Simulated scan of single mutants.
Amino acid sequence: MLTVLFWIFVAVVAIQFLYYIVVFGKFSFVKAKKNNLKKIPISVIVCAKNEAENVTKFIPLLIQQNYPDFEIILIDDASSDATLDIFEAYEKEHANVKLVKVVNNEAFWGNKKFALTLGIKAATKEYLLFTDADCYPTSPNWIAEMSSHFTMQKTIVLGYGAYEKIPKSFINKIIRFETVLTAVQYFSWARIGKPYMGIGRNMAYKKEEFFNVNGFIDHMKIRSGDDDLFINQAATRKNTTVCYTSDSFTYSEPKTTYKEWFTQKRRHVSTATFYKSFDKMQLGLFFLTQLLTFILPIILLAFQFQWIAVVSLVAFRYLFSWISLGFGAGKLNEKDVMFWYPIIEIVLIFTQLNMFVTNLFSKPAHWK
């Protein structure tokens, strides 16, 4: 039995090597592509529900973007605070700001996808750039950087949405490490030609891509997934590209407690169950081999079975995974999280396992 477990462990390390070096290497070990800036007309779309404080801080940063031809579509999704009043003031002050007011609809109560659909239809430009109400661009060249990756063939652009750094906060390091790992995964698979997700904090696509798949109609009843489920359905090898130059990043305020973050991530995990079969398989295999990377060595070492070989394989696995993620984190300006990599990875793996089990017995909350 121990011999069987040992060879399973060898296979697990080999699979992990394929993920970290072969797959993730498509992102980690490749330089960011700097494209020539374009002047494509862009509609920036922001959907907000009870975000008065955030929109007051962040919408001015969108208005100040250094780009020749863009409009901002502000969607108020039946807010009960001052969000609508703030949006109306922006619309009066700026000619390129357009307000979309959404009232509660019994058939689509509290459904962000319904609100986004109205905003997309109201956009007058053919190219759409999305971010969230609690996000802000890292540079006045955000629109320019993201739009520069559009071509005649590439009509979907996946960007990176980071979280702010909180000094001396370990939960912040966990959150940012998980964000880096997720980005390395979806950037890498997109570069391979198998895009499976994007993030609503920073992504762009041509309006025709939305209507080609009838918008969110196939997953309208699923409250989450206006970003990743749409990309999972619409993105292909031919129409999708990635943008990860530093000026293209957006930032959000992260959760500050483990409980808040756990609740947030439960929604993301539950949405992944609706991905295409291949995408669920490759994500499931990656997580399973990560989990077995910790469980199998503990069992083998407890019986001192081939302990030199087991320790060597564990060290080898840490070496290539640390190198791969380290290069990826460097591209995303997140190098500091890698100093805590071994500890954070263990916490993250067993947190994800807890999320999966928890979601089996209760449904996570969604849009406000």
Rank of each mutant, 00 (worst) to 15 (best):
P254Q: 09
P254F: 05
T257H: 09
T257I: 13
Y258W: 13
Y258I: 13
Y258N: 11
Y258G: 11
K259C: 13
F262T: 08
F262G: 04
T263D: 05
T263N: 07
Q264F: 13
Q264G: 13
Q264H: 14
R266N: 10
R266V: 09
R266H: 06
R267E: 10
H268R: 14
T271D: 06
T271N: 08
A272N: 10
S277Y: 14
F278L: 08
K280H: 04
Q282F: 10
Q282M: 11
L283C: 04
G284W: 05
G284S: 07
G284L: 09
L285P: 03
F287E: 09
F287I: 10
F287V: 11
L288P: 06
L288D: 05
L288E: 05
L288N: 06
T289N: 01
T289E: 01
L291W: 08
L292N: 03
F294Q: 06
P297K: 05
I298C: 11
L300N: 02
L300R: 02
L301M: 12
A302H: 04
A302D: 04
A302T: 07
A302W: 01
Q304G: 15
Q304T: 15
F305C: 13
Q306V: 15
W307N: 14
W307H: 14
I308M: 14
I308D: 14
A309V: 14
V311K: 15
V311G: 15
S312G: 15
L313F: 02
L313H: 01
A315F: 14
A315E: 13
F316Y: 08
R317V: 09
L319K: 08
F320C: 03
F320K: 03
F320G: 02
S324D: 00
S324C: 01
S324N: 00
G326Q: 00
G328S: 00
G328W: 00
G328Q: 00
A329I: 03
G330Y: 04
G330P: 04
K331P: 02
K331R: 12
L332W: 01
E334T: 11
D336F: 05
D336C: 07
D336S: 10
M338E: 00
M338W: 00
F339I: 15
F339R: 15
F339Y: 13
W340M: 09
Y341V: 07
Y341M: 10
Y341E: 08
P342F: 11
P342Q: 10
I343D: 02
I343K: 04
I344T: 04
E345W: 02
V347H: 01
L348M: 05
I349W: 02
I349G: 02
